[in-house]
Computed example of a mutant assay.
Amino acid sequence: MVKAIESYGIPVVHICTIVPISQTVGANRIVPAVAIPYPLGDPAKTPEEEKKIRRAILEKAIKALQTPISEQTVF
């Protein structure tokens, strides 16, 4: 799906828990997530801590969208 969207010139960021899989499927901009069951958070954290985690991952993804790349890149 990532490659299909990018074929139209729309940059995509793949937030993932297992980076090698994203690389194998051809994602160009890869942002690692927290863990498989909770990619954008950690239920053991307080709501405030989880919000910080989510914000950091999303800010990294937005920066990745703005970054010109020429090959697969893990941010």
Rank of each mutant, 00 (worst) to 15 (best):
S7Q: 13
I18H: 15
V25L: 01
G9P: 11
L65K: 02
E71T: 14
T17K: 14
D42V: 09
K3E: 13
L58S: 02
P32K: 02
P47K: 01
G26L: 06
V34I: 11
M1N: 15
M1P: 12
G26E: 03
D42L: 13
R29S: 06
K45V: 02
I69F: 05
A44R: 13
Y38M: 14
P47D: 01
S22L: 03
P43K: 10
K3R: 15
P11K: 03
G41Q: 04
A64V: 01
P20Y: 13
M1W: 10
V31P: 03
G41S: 14
V12C: 04
N28D: 09
G9W: 04
V13E: 00
D42A: 07
E59I: 04
Y38D: 03
A44M: 14
V12G: 04
A27T: 05
L40I: 08
T17E: 15
Y38A: 12
S7M: 08
P68R: 06
P37A: 03
S7A: 13
A4R: 14
Q72P: 07
Q72H: 08
T46G: 06
V74M: 00
A56C: 07
Q72V: 07
P39Q: 04
K3W: 05
I18M: 13
T46N: 04
P20A: 07
P39W: 02
V12I: 15
E49M: 12
F75K: 10
I36A: 12
P37W: 11
K63S: 05
Y8H: 15
